[in-house]
């Protein structure tokens, strides 16, 4: 069976980074000042205002800062309950996203890695979207 395309190919890729080849990588950026950020943008650096911004592949690994089970969600296209978390990537930036895997084990400090899960896009076509899950589960 053919692998579905990524839902948000501007934000991540299926291939890993040099440091974490097994985990889908995030597509961030780095400024000439050294500030590493996610996602990639070309408007200007939030730390120094510089515009010398280059793409930087970020490893799909980090530590859980916080998580919450969402029981009620006002938006369309996503049914509660689901679990969200904030993760500090090993490469620095903090991301907030959906959490997959063993939700009972979640606690701040837990090692988390990226994973691609099958979803449908707005038209119902199959896609793969990035999530974080506890490492080794």
């Amino acid at each position: 069976m053919e692998t579905p395309p990524l839902l948000k190919p501007g934000l991540y890729r299926a291939e890993g980074s040099a440091a974490r080849p097994g985990q889908p990588a995030l597509l961030g950026g780095v400024c000439a000042c050294g500030h590493v950020f996610f996602p990639l943008q070309a408007y200007g650096c939030e730390r120094c205002g510089g515009v010398d911004l280059q793409p930087r592949v970020l490893s799909g690994a980090g530590r859980l800062l916080a998580s919450a089970r969402v029981h009620l969600h006002p938006g369309k296209g996503r049914e509660a309950p689901f679990t969200v978390g904030s993760i500090r990537l090993d490469d620095g930036p903090i991301v907030r996203t959906l959490i997959e895997g063993d939700l009972g084990a979640l606690h701040p400090g837990l090692a988390m890695v990226t994973t691609l899960v099958p979803v449908a896009d707005a038209e119902g076509a199959p896609r793969l979207d990035l999530r974080f899950a506890p490492e080794g589960v």
Binding site: K8, G10, L11, Y12, P39, Q41, Y43, L65, A66, S67, A68, V70, H73, P74, G75, G77, R78, F82, V84, G85, S86, V95, R96, T97, L98, P108, L130
Partner: peptide
């Protein structure tokens, strides 16, 4: 035009629920 990984999953109370957990 700078979307996050799952912006649609975060209402204000979701943001603060994460802060409460932390």
């Amino acid at each position: 035009g700078i979307g996050g990984l799952a912006d649609d999953a975060f209402a204000p109370f979701t943001h603060f629920a994460l802060l409460a957990d932390a």
